[in-house]
Amino acid sequence: MNTHRTTRTGNVLYIVDSKRPSAGCIMTEMREYWQGLRQNESIPLRADVTADAISKVLDYAFLVERLAPEMARFRLVGQHLIDLMGMELRGMPLCSVINQASRKRMCKVTETVFRAPQIVEMKLRSRSAQGCPVISGSMLLLPLKSDLDDVTRALGCLVSEGPIGIGPRRFDLAETKFTPVIRGGQILYPSPVPEPGKP
């Protein structure tokens, strides 16, 4: 049985795995796993996250650590992100998967995950270029506590839709959705990004 479909863009032929779960299914499974780790609506510990428990979506998963305000880096990275960027991302900033124009906004959005803490979902879009068709993506960030009981870790996933083409594929931040970790809680919105040329 053929489990692949082909997509042609210009003179490049891409092969796309049709058995891959949809972005919605991957994000739902990740969110339900995180929710299952909670006790009395607490934030789960990073130490409680295991690869075996998310084996079906592991390729799309990642873990990040907050190093300073508005600065987070990858600690562990799934294969899908490596394929998108064409390189190993461990130790690199989370915003390295984002185009320059959206990076400040991305850093401020990510900071709310740790400060509130809260859940953030993002819609992403990567522009077309030679050998690179337009692709969309979805990212989910879920707060975690470190062994010191502070919220400085996050479990996430990033799923792109469409053939990757030639990496690295970086994204613009198109939409954001914030969800409090406690039902009825307040949302912490990111601070505004100054316009270019203004303080």
Rank of each mutant, 00 (worst) to 15 (best):
G185I: 05
C95P: 00
L124I: 04
G184T: 03
K177N: 13
Q100Y: 03
A174Q: 09
P117K: 07
A154F: 10
R105K: 11
I98Q: 05
P190L: 04
V120I: 15
E88L: 15
I98D: 01
F178A: 12
D150I: 15
L158R: 00
P194V: 04
P196W: 07
C132G: 05
E121W: 09
M122V: 11
S96V: 07
R153M: 14
A129Q: 12
G156H: 03
M122H: 08
G131P: 13
E111Y: 00
L94K: 00
L144V: 13
M139T: 13
A101H: 02
Q100E: 01
P133M: 11
E111P: 06
S191K: 04
M106L: 04
K177T: 10
V97M: 08
S102V: 01
K123D: 12
V193Y: 03
Q118E: 15
E175P: 02
M92S: 11
L141A: 13
M92P: 02
R170I: 11
I98W: 02
S160Y: 04
P117A: 09
S191E: 15
Q118P: 09
P93L: 03
C157K: 08
I182A: 10
I187E: 04
G91T: 01
K177L: 14
V113R: 05
P163T: 05
P133H: 05
I182C: 06
L142T: 04
I164E: 05
L142N: 08
